[in-house]
Design a protein around this nucleic acid. Sequence first.
RNA 1: GGCGAUGUAGCUCAGCUGGUUAGAGCGCACGACUCAUAAUCGUGAGGUCCGGGGUUCAAGUCCCCGCAUCGCUACCA
Length: 641
Amino acid sequence: MTATFYATTPIFYVNAEPHIGHAYTTILVDVAARYHRLAGDDVRFLTGTDEHGEKIAKAAEAAGTTPQAYVDQVSQQFRDTWDRLGITYDGFIRTTESRHQKIVQDVLQRVYDQGDIIYGEYGGLYCVKCERYYTEKELEDGKCPQHDLEPEYRSEANYFFRMEKYRPWLKEQLETNPNLIRPEGYRNEVLAMLREPIGDLSISRPKERVPWGIPLPWDEDHVTYVWFDALLNYWSDLESQGLDDRYWPHVQHFIAKDILKPHGVFWPTMLKAAGIPLFQHLNVHGYWLVEDRKMSKSVGNVVRPLELEQRYGNDAFRYFLLRDMSFGLDASFHELGLAERINADLANDLGNLLNRTLGMLGKYRSGVVPSFGPLTAEDEALRDAFTSLPNAVMREVEGLHFDRALAMVMEAVAAANKYVSDQKPWELAKDEAQSERLDTVLRGCLEALRCASILLDPVMPGKMQELRAQIGVSGDVILDDASHWERLEAGSATEPGEPLFPRVDLEALKATMDVAGGSEEASEAAAPALEHKPEITIDDFAKLELRVGTITAAEDHPNADRLWVLTVQVGPETRTVVSGIKAHYTAEQLVGTTVILVANLAPVKLRGVLSQGMILAAEDAEGNLSLAGLDRSLPDGSEVR
RNA sequence: GGCGAUGUAGCUCAGCUGGUUAGAGCGCACGACUCAUAAUCGUGAGGUCCGGGGUUCAAGUCCCCGCAUCGCUACCA
């Protein structure tokens, strides 16, 4: 009896090139899919690209091309990357495909017809100066708390999905099914979101503003905004091919934690409204925290994991990613950690087991696979260590504990190394009377390698096939082959080759990291083009009144923990300025500092404190701040022009 | 401020429903072996399980109060 496995990655937004985040999710699903295929399950693995929206239309324009040509190109880039990483997706869906668009429209129409999509007359009380809506509660005496203005009633010209209506239902689903979202921490987060109203969801944009999208079937002036377009891919891919009966009942999604809300809240309510059964699992993983190299923080200094994939090889890279992250938690990505993992597990333990086995086999048995003699207790222990693994490994894979699954296999490999030391084939070889014993020991090592190669095949498909080739096994394998000990053919020839996983020279690596400090790559990181604002005239600029000021005090904001309430001396005037630089400057650093103040900015209340001006600071792409000042001392109050 | 996560050996982390002297891998020290990619095998050193209270016969594991780091969020004129 075979099971069915249908897993998805998110479809990736094509406004940027693939990076480690995309790659990790995709590799994860690939590994899971490969394990299930190995187990004989009916598998479907879906990925794809999300190709609509304003950003893409603009990016295409900037690139001097049409949106379609643009998304064709970037989507292809994703597929090229997946090919390089050995991703075996069964389906690749693009939101610009007509099969997808048609189904999105069908579903929208259905949900609309049953009254769950309404025109956005919600609107509400809108403060023109703030450019935002206020709830009754937020207003002070019916007026905007910032501008003391009477807000006006406005309605957005959008359609809304009545999501709030399904909140109790979703809550109940989560409460009755603890495995719906896993690991548990993320389930709790979603439950927390559902404790308070989730509101209705804006699902459209005016076509005149965003022409690059799927038109609403009942209103050609609006296009679908992201959610119904993107999320429905998981369903549309199946339905458009008549595969929904076969796979949908088994669907599970894999995502990174940053898109928990759309998948944990929006998506299930959308499914409910559309009359589509809920998914089985939403599997949420953490981030790879990619650390800066030593010292410098300059751009381009960052280790780019996908470059390391090419340097260390795809299989080793996949192994590292799966082995060193426990599902759901964040993990840190160090090149040194990757290298150490490769040496310890792959080169020293597994690779060397192959090497020493084939070495002895060549020396003592001309490289020919021997037969087993009678098995001793030690032989049986080794056998059992491996043949019990397929079930255990699958169990861990199903529970998303890929790290544990791999650790279990490597434990068995370590046991095989110990077996070699204990049995000492090199001594058996010296005694003709021990010939059968030597056969048995060498054969045991070969079987261990064969089993390991199957158990690790989903993670390192290329290298494991290579391993099997070296021990004389060709063709496809199935997981069950690893449950049996005597699957090699006695008398067949082995074909020793290059070491499977060359050791990484850690000393040399450390040396380059110390010396380079990242500078080598810094220069080649092309700075992205600057985005410019509309040109202004000198008269526009003259409207600004910039003055030198001195910070005389910095106090905590009573009602916000990321804001400073600064007292700034500007000549004869003393101003209060609320500033969001608390994460970057301490009070000690600020007091006495000379700053440049926008002195004629309209005062504004920020969380209850009146701010009379704004302090200038520079901010880089990574969010680092530096206050603008003067390079020689001038009295405060001086004007800056 | 609200919500949440994390904090266990030098490093990376396991420790499910509380139960014998707290674990693994790497690194380190010493020893063994020599078939092997200076690999392997064995032994050992090393921990106030963030801190403080509490519940219990018993707490890394449950409760309360803190601290630190991170994330989301409010906010950043």
